[in-house]
Each structure stands twice: as C-alpha cells, then as structure tokens.
Design a protein around this nucleic acid. Structure first.
Lengths: 137, 137
DNA sequence: CTTGACCCTGTAGCTGCTACGGGGCGCAGG
DNA sequence: CCTGCGCCCCGTAGCAGCTACAGGGTCAAG
C-alpha cells in the first residue's frame, strides 16, 4: 500500500549510498537475495532489500568481512545474540590489534619524520629506520 | 672475500623472513633487481640483495605501499631526506587517520558487545547497531 | 642410479570492489 | 512513428599484494 512498492537498482543505490555495481556484486556472491524482475528483466527491489542492504553497509563500515556479514545477517531471520556476539567480539579483538599495530607505526614514523625536520643526522632518519642491519656477519 | 658470497632464493628467504614467492614477485614487479644466475638458471643473491630486501620488508612492516617503497629506496643510491620526508609524513597522516577510524569502530563495537553480555535488550545490540533505520518513510 | 630437496616458469586464486564494453529498455520531444 | 537520452542488462578484466599451485629441471647424498 505504499506509493512506491519497488525501486530500480539505481534508486536503491541512491537510497542506501551503496554503489550500483556493488549491489550487483553482492547479488552475485549471494550476500543479497535475487530480487524479482520486471518483464524487461530489470531488478525490482522491495523495502526489505533496502533494509538488508543498509544493514550490510553499516556492517561493512564497522569493518566486518563479507563472511562475517553473512554470518551476522543470515539469508533469513535475524540471528540470536549468542551467534552474533562471538563474531563481534572477535572482530573487536582484531580492531584492537590493528590499533595497537598502527600506534607502534605512528610512534616509529613520527619519530623519524621529526628527525627529518630537525635534521641533525647525516643519513635520513626514515631510511635509518629501514636499514638497521647493514651487514649480516 | 666472505665465506658465502651468494645465496639461493630459499636461503635469502630464510635470512630475511620474506616468503620465497614474494621475493620472486618483487623481482617481477621490478622492486628487487634481477640477480645473477648460475649455469643451471638458479638465482644467486649477493649481500646487497639481502640488505635491500630487508629494507623493503621493514618498509612494508611500517605500512608503506609498494609504490612508496619504490620511491623511498630507488633502484640505486639512498634517497635524500628531502625526497623521503614528504612520503613518510603523508603515510604518517594516513596511519593517524586509520587509527582514528578504528577507534570509532572500537567504541561502537565495544559498547555493542558489552550490551550483548549484560543482555538487557530484546534484540541483539550488535544487530541494533546495524539496523538503525527499519523503514524509509 | 635413485631419491629427495631444492630450484625454475607461468598462471590462477584471494578480498572487495570498480570499471569497462557492447548491448537492451522506457519515456519525452519532434 | 522515430530519435535520443538515460537508465538498465550481462560478463569480464582490473586494482593491491601477495600466495599457491602445476609441471617441470637440477643437485648432492647414499
């Protein structure tokens, strides 16, 4: 009973902010269900598709992998907390690990770049960070 | 006048901790120079190769792209600070941006996962984070 | 002389898209 | 009715940065 029961792929892309080609890609990898088609073969999306795609988009923005997304929002009904929580917790752990890694990098790079600017070293401090092992024996 | 003037690709891999196939890949994309060959066609690496590959490895560990690495350690002599510093500074900026992004994720995911564990909500808090927009109009 | 560990080449696969190329459809204007 | 524009269709190739084959050759020990 809505004024616009179905939308085209381009409209869905505009509604959700997901690239049109990406939507087709999601269908190809069975992350999005195949929508009904018009007589001419155009995809006709319902509001359920829009909801699902929005969820996928947010999950991707949160850094979940495609496989994680598949596990989080199965092909049908919403998953129970007991299934969702371990995936989210694992992902959170990898996010934290990445943060820790990046902070190490930040420290090292920051020091090297500062060394460049103060310019007291003979060789470039950035290069020095890379070449800490000139000879083997 | 060293006892082992050249090493095979497998030995170089062991020395540097870089995967053997990755070394060949670096040669293919001209990041590593083509080494001399034995009569049988085996690659024969000198210590210079080992040094260069170690530098590449450290640069990659610091998150520099292959193109950045190419710019940092050209095919010949070490680059001057003036060339190196902008690349390192730009990379540092992207590292900081990634950290900021990941911290946002950490906050959101952390709150959701905690919500799961305290379990007061009807629907899973993780799913709630994903589905904040049930209907369009 | 055989066995096994190494080496060679080239190509296909991975993730998650994105961008073609070469065609159909739908609707508005002339 | 026809044209033209914008959208849609499909399939495939490309991006980074490896990694993993398949199907061979080589070398040194036993």
């Amino acid at each position: 009973m809505a004024s616009s029961p179905t939308v085209t792929i381009g409209q869905l892309a505009a509604l959700t902010g997901v690239n049109l080609e990406t939507i087709r890609y999601y269908e190809r990898i069975a992350l999005m269900p195949e929508p009904a088609r018009t007589a001419a073969g155009y995809r006709a999306y319902e509001d359920e598709h829009r909801q699902r795609l929005s969820m996928i988009r947010r999950a991707r923005e949160l850094g979940f992998s495609i496989d994680d997304v598949r596990a989080l929002i199965g092909l049908g009904e919403p998953k129970p907390c007991a299934e969702v929580e371990p995936i989210a917790a694992a992902h959170l752990a990898t996010v934290r690990a990445k943060i820790a890694d990046l902070r190490r990098l930040e420290t090292l790079l920051g020091a090297a770049v500062r060394g460049c600017r103060t310019g007291t070293s003979q060789t470039c401090p950035v290069i020095e960070v890379l070449g800490g092992d000139p000879a083997s024996a």
